[in-house]
Design a protein around this nucleic acid. Structure first.
Lengths: 189, 189
DNA sequence: GTCTATAGGACGATAGAC
DNA sequence: GTCTATCGTCCTATAGAC
């Protein structure tokens, strides 16, 4: 494990604050206070507040894109692909819940990089949708409206960052199994 | 239908802006521009920016509390209660998607009313959890971890405001039926 | 790499004329 | 009920000393 640079530390602490209050409500003075330094000193490590947001969001968005490509190329059945996507979301949510919070709630405050982010998100959703369509076509999934399935799964998976931090390590292992059951098999007996 | 007062109009337009950029990023000058008036003039109708947020969020939070009380007193089986809760969320999301956005993403910017809001939300979640526990106990639901079921259902239902506006009226009627299938029966064939 | 000082502008909100 | 003018504060970011 490489030692964390000062810049990485600032970005990590910023993500924590963004999760609590949102990007717009966090000031550089707030961030400086949490880092135990003066606001002006932050600018020796980062270029702007906006650049911090870009770092946080784009790193995760690109991890999802990469993960999706692996799932598409390596998994076989549609249900297998959906299982792999659930695992992808759980893994990223455990690794970086604060960054995911920023991605989910503050993406609209991206400036130059907004279009790039929206393109990544759109591609991801289209790939997710195609897997569901395929699953219905080959009779693996119930013939429910594709958009409703997509919406329900993505809503749950995108909210994981809110719940993961409340679970201890043991329960997190169980989470993946239970979540797969609920999302794929339903809760009705 | 009563005619909309100027105050109600301001609050409605504010909710639209809050949904787009979040409470902190919307300025009174933004709101004034959307209302086609000067920022100072807003203060003849509302007391403060904070008071607008309170109006939007607490009205919806209280509607959920009232809806939950009706569900608990009127429905019989656990699955029936869950069906009624899904319908409650769909109804409120259709009526006021902008207000729901503020409730979901800007509740932490409530000041004096924050504790009251958190109490309502906590009571609501406890009632929801009790219904799931009851359903597992009387063998209506699969014995999956209660928190995972609660998390999955609430995540989907709380995100409805993002998807409802994208659907036309016909598809909205279908939404309730499909959503119930997905959330209760699962998607696996 | 951190500090003090501050530029230059935007913020929420009020005063008072009409 | 809306306007113009403005107050006092806070914002992001830079300059320059150490």
């Amino acid at each position: 494990m490489k030692k964390e640079t000062r810049k990485e530390e600032i970005i990590r602490v910023a993500a924590q604050l963004f999760k609590q209050k949102g990007y717009s409500a966090v000031t550089m003075r707030d961030l400086a206070k949490a880092m135990d330094m003066q606001a002006a000193s932050l600018y020796n490590h980062i270029n702007s507040k906006q650049a911090i947001l870009q770092d946080i969001i784009l790193e995760i968005a690109e991890a999802f894109t990469e993960g999706m490509n692996v799932v598409i190329s390596e998994s076989n059945s549609s249900v297998e692909k959906l299982n792999a996507l659930i695992a992808l979301h759980v893994r990223i949510a455990i690794n970086n819940p604060e960054g995911l919070a920023a991605l989910n709630t503050d993406w609209m405050h991206l400036e130059e990089k907004l279009d790039y982010y929206l393109q990544l998100r759109n591609d991801y959703e289209n790939n997710f949708r195609a897997i569901i369509v395929e699953g219905i076509k080959n009779d693996e999934l119930k013939p429910v409206d594709v958009e409703v399935i997509l919406f329900s799964m993505l809503s749950t998976l995108r909210s994981l960052y809110l719940w993961i931090p409340k679970k201890d390590a043991i329960k997190r292992q169980q989470l993946l199994e239970d979540l797969t059951t609920v999302l794929i098999q339903g809760i009705n007996k």
